[in-house]
Design a protein around this nucleic acid. Structure first.
Length: 670
RNA sequence: GCGCCUGUAGCUCAGAUGGAUAGAGCGUUUGCCUCCGAAGCAAAAGGCCGCAGGUUCGAAUCCUGCCAGGCGUACCA
């Protein structure tokens, strides 16, 4: 809501500067004054102009005031300090506009800028998911929700590396450590996914342990690494029992990942599999393209002889010495003719933008309880499959350690001449989740004194160290259920479970979202299990409080409809309340509630979902403060009571939207 | 060595595009349940914003150089 006014102020300022000084400036940055008496939106652009115009900033501001004062929704503009322009909004007008928007269910105008493709989760399908994967999925899913709120057409892809070494390792484990046949593995999967009864051990957990054992085997006997190489080759070439077993395992594991993520309200549109990138010769097409455009070259001598490589450094400028540093090239095709991971990723990303001249086949893979369908790539797809890919921009949510590789993909786009596409190719990089040393030791990880000094302990799938996603979710739900029971909120066990699940998911998602992408999360059960302070449950509690007011009020006023409440108030009444003794408090809450769209825009521009998390918490705090200060149900003045209900409704709608963006559901009671 | 990231209160972190008095949560101390549920509210204490220069009317924010930590720099993914 405020977003529109902010944009109008910016363009009005540009216009005014042009009219007054015949000068072209870019839209100025906006901020908030230190307090509300000074205004609602401040503009410091006059300081910048002072240099060019050789005039005092305050003089410039004074000259511009009449030119920027004629804006709808702006009551007056004042000059403050050494030259700030402070805009005072028309409070009743702003509130009415905001209320209209929050009361209607219509979403933002459909964007016309094409499809946005978001790739996230992308867990190796060889073992159970851990907390690091949850950070990826929660960041990605929240970003998707924000884009959709802004009216974007978004497609969610989960890349499945089902032909890589990680899957090969588990296959080695089944074949050589456990001496299991294809039939045995099939039976094992059957037994662990049988409906009705809990399995002795879940298949993804089984593989988690097996994977760690395989690594132990490699360490003890280096000769066994040959088994891995052979398995990988069989899988990539797609023949033999090994390949069938790999397919069986990866598909079963992917199903467990989908279930785990669904617990956190995360869904996908497409599983893009590496096996099809190989089978459909995506790489060959990309290889031809790269050769044709001379983006890669064949190395016939030196350390990388026999490989196809990409130069990472620009050609040296005139007069500059030719450097032949080994670090300046990246091998794309190995000397044995097989392609590296980056090569496959280049092919995949070219496909995302429909630059490959090839497409996958598609088949339905899984239908969610709400009816939404996840598709999966195949060789021969269904003719009626929806269209996937053809993106105008793409985000890949991948941890920051892969920045180097992502930059190579981008560099390949540039070399191929796809500069615009390269600019629309975003590596949504985030830091990893580690364990605090205390947490690691609680989980039985043996630490050296040196490890203990470190800020965090790395999660290691190879050693089987880490907090499994489902274990964490289970622990959170159990903790939440204890809280629910102790508060006597519900008797029915099903209801208790429902509340506990919603609260646990809120706690976990908010915990992962409140950190900005670039900081390492040192995971600790104590913090992740917290339900007080800056947490997801705090937000839920705020909303439940607001809804409780409506529920109780409805008991004495059966006709009451929260969405209709603005009709009971005239503009004059609104003005009166905002100008009155408690006006500043009322206005502060309204103004904050109006900033949702600004925050969403900022979160998208900066690729930082934490912006919305922090905002939701601030709004929750403001509401709880308001709730404590103003008693609504026993307010004697009927019109004032209506006004207070009106503010509660505005806040409740805004908080509900903000929590929806974070994938947080609201229980009926807390 | 080179590249990227990080350094703000006891702890964990916000402070996007330079702006007016540096903010939260946790922890500590202290008040508030006969008033819409205390998963809450109010208050106190707690800061050479890693260090040193520079640019600017103005720097936690931009530039340079240091210091400390992390990650990357594979014919692994």
């Amino acid at each position: 809501m405020l977003l529109e006014i902010q944009q109008k102020i910016q363009s009005k300022f540009v216009e005014a500067v042009r009219a007054a000084f015949n000068l072209e400036v870019s839209p100025p940055a906006l901020d908030a004054p230190p307090n509300l008496e000074m205004g609602d939106i401040s503009l410091a652009g006059c300081f910048e102009l002072a240099k060019q115009l050789h005039k005092a900033p305050r003089k410039i501001a004074e000259q511009l005031v009449p030119l920027v004062s004629t804006l709808e929704g702006v009551e007056r503009v004042t000059v403050a300090g050494a030259g700030y322009l402070n805009f005072h909004l028309d409070r009743a007008h702003t509130a009415a506009q905001l209320s209209a928007r929050r009361s209607s269910s219509s979403t933002a105008a459909r964007s016309t800028s094409g499809k946005i493709l978001v790739e996230h989760t992308s867990i190796n399908p060889n073992k159970a998911a851990h907390i690091g994967h949850l950070r990826n999925a929660v960041l990605g899913d929240t970003f998707v929700r924000l884009l959709r709120f802004n009216g974007e057409n978004v497609e969610v892809q989960n890349y499945v590396d089902n032909t890589g070494v990680q899957v090969a390792d588990v296959v080695v484990g089944f074949l050589h450590l456990e001496k299991k046949t294809l039939k045995d593995v099939e039976a094992l999967i059957q037994s662990t996914t049988a409906p009705g009864q809990p399995p002795a051990k879940r298949f993804d957990y089984y593989c988690w342990d097996l994977y760690a054992r395989v690594f132990q085997l490699y360490e003890e006997d280096k000769e066994t690494l040959k088994l891995r190489a052979q398995a990988l080759k069989d899988i990539e070439e797609g023949h033999g029992e090994t390949a069938v077993m790999a397919e069986l395992i990866s598909t079963a594991i992917v199903r467990t990942h989908l279930e785990t993520m669904l617990r956190l309200n995360i869904q996908y549109d497409l599983l893009a599999q590496e096996s099809e990138i190989l089978k459909l010769n995506f790489w060959k097409a990309a290889f031809e393209l790269l050769k044709k455009e001379k983006a890669i070259r064949f190395e016939d001598a030196g350390k990388s002889a026999g490989c196809w490589v990409m130069d990472l450094k620009e050609a040296p400028a005139e007069g500059e010495a030719e450097t032949t540093d080994i670090d300046d090239i990246k091998i794309i095709v190995r000397s044995n003719g097989t392609v590296t991971y980056v090569g496959k990723d280049i092919a995949y990303h070219l496909w995302k933008f429909a630059l490959l001249g090839k497409d996958f086949g598609y088949t339905p893979f899984h239908r969610y309880p709400d009816g939404h369908c996840v598709w999966r790539t195949t060789v021969d797809g269904q003719p009626d499959a929806p269209s996937f890919g053809h993106a105008s921009s793409a985000y890949a949510v991948i941890d920051t350690r892969q920045s180097y590789l992502q930059n190579i993909v981008k560099a390949a786009f540039h070399t191929l001449g796809y500069h615009e596409r390269a600019a629309n190719l975003h590596h949504f990089a985030y830091e990893v989740v580690g364990l605090t040393s205390r947490c690691a030791e609680e989980m039985g990880v043996v630490l050296s004194d040196e490890d203990r000094q470190r800020p965090y302990v790395e999660v290691s799938g190879r050693k089987g160290q880490g907090v499994k996603a489902d274990d964490l979710i289970d622990t959170l739900i159990a903790r939440a259920a204890e809280e629910v029971s102790s508060r006597d909120m519900a008797q029915d066990p099903a209801v208790v479970q429902d509340y506990a699940r919603k609260i646990a998911v809120a706690a976990l998602r908010y915990f992962l979202l409140k950190f900005s992408r670039r900081v390492i999360i040192a995971f600790d059960f104590k913090e992740a299990l917290a339900f007080e302070g800056e947490t997801g449950p705090y937000l839920q509690y705020s909303i439940v409080r607001a809804r409780n007011i409506f529920r109780k009020f409805s008991e004495s006023h059966p006709d009451f409809q929260p969405a209709q409440i603005s009709r009971a108030l005239t503009t004059e009444q609104l003005q009166g309340f905002f100008k009155g003794e408690d006006g500043p408090a009322f206005w502060e809450l309204t103004l904050l509630a109006g900033q949702l769209e600004t925050m969403v825009a900022q979160a998208i521009n900066s690729e930082e979902p934490a912006v919305v998390a922090k905002y939701a918490f601030r709004l929750g705090q403001a509401f709880n403060n308001f709730y404590h200060h103003f008693h609504i149900l026993n307010e004697p003045d009927a019109s004032r009571q209506q006004f207070l209900l009106y503010l509660v409704h505005l806040t409740e709608r805004t908080l509900t939207l903000a929590t929806e963006h974070m994938g947080i559901e609201i229980p009926d009671r807390m």
